[in-house]
């Protein structure tokens, strides 16, 4: 662990530019250099929100963009995990001290982040994750980043504070849309109404960033533009099942059997074949289409 002072040469330029940059930062790992985008959201993220955060972070990482998040449960975790799937390091900014890690179940994730990226905190070791520390921490997340992507945030939530701080700091605000029935999309949807950029893919994010960053991303793109599994399987009997599935809303075996007028046994068999082909994600009777790339 090291300490980074405001006048040190390694101090992030973007962060130094905000109105109240932290005088000193505790750093575990190595603070990576490159364009940064924050991905934050609710700790109660739905499976959809977590998949979206994971996917966007992974795609950003594949374009050489450093993903910044808060190591919280839910969306933050999905963002870090997604970023770690790609080649670019990720940065976690903590509200507590760097030791012990909060939340405790993310100790192992923190270890993986620190291998290539960094954990940052303004608070000394042993500092507790007190409620007052979170908004203070959020100004660092947005301050470090060119833009902030909000994935699922309730009204009056920490993620919305981050969005407001980002605007004050002159950074871009991006929002991932969701179901209007989900209260966690109230936050991002009202931000979009107020002019934030709606994000469907990583391209939507890059388009709003400076040309220099786009060029950097093009130069660092490891994977070609992500090909999505948005076309179904070739086999007609598998395609028939896939057609009934949704990207977000899970379906149950019983519903599929009913709609297809098929035996549940046959439905089970087809679902397994679809899972083996990575077309769908099955989770004990909750089946959704898979957005993962086909690795064949």
């Amino acid at each position: 662990m090291s300490v980074l002072w405001r006048n040190d040469p390694g101090y992030p330029v973007l962060l130094a530019a905000i109105a109240d940059p932290p005088a000193r930062l505790f750093v575990r790992g190595v603070l990576p250099v490159g364009p940064t985008v924050a991905v934050v959201g609710s700790r109660q993220g739905t499976p959809y929100g977590q998949r979206a955060a994971h996917q966007l972070a992974e795609d950003l990482s594949n374009q050489g963009i450093i993903v910044v998040s808060g190591l919280a449960r839910g969306i933050d975790r999905a963002a870090h995990e997604g970023a770690l799937t790609g080649p670019t390091p990720t940065v976690a900014v903590l509200a507590s001290g760097l030791d012990p890690i909060y939340p405790p179940e993310h100790v192992e994730l923190a270890d993986r982040i620190a291998v290539t990226g960094a954990l940052l905190s303004e608070a000394e070791d042993g500092s507790l994750p007190l409620p007052a520390r979170f908004p203070v921490r959020n100004r660092i997340i947005s301050g470090l980043s060119l833009g902030v992507i909000i994935v699922e945030a309730a009204e009056r939530s920490g993620a919305l504070i981050t969005a407001r701080l980002a605007l004050e700091q002159g950074r871009e605000v991006f929002c991932v849309p969701g179901s209007i029935e989900n209260p966690l999309t109230l936050g991002p949807h009202s931000l979009v109404k107020d002019g934030a950029t709606l994000v469907r893919t990583v391209e939507d994010v890059l388009a709003e960033l400076p040309e220099a960053v786009r060029a950097y991303a093009r130069a660092h793109a490891r994977a070609p533009a992500p090909a999505r599994a948005d076309s179904g399987p070739q086999e007609p009997e598998l395609a028939a099942v896939w057609e009934l599935l949704d990207w977000v809303e899970p379906r149950h075996h019983d519903e599929l059997a009913e709609q297809l007028r098929l035996d549940v046994i046959e439905v089970s068999r087809r679902l397994t074949l679809l899972e083996m082909g990575n077309y769908i994600i099955g989770d004990r009777g909750a089946v959704t289409r898979s957005r993962r790339r086909l690795d064949k």
Binding site: R43, Q44, T46, Y48, E105, S179, E181, P183, E249, P250
Partner: peptide, 16 residues
Amino acid sequence: YGDQKKPCTCTPPQRQ
């Protein structure tokens, strides 16, 4: 948990 329309009010550690 898993209900898309009525979100679960449990925290992840509770669920775990």
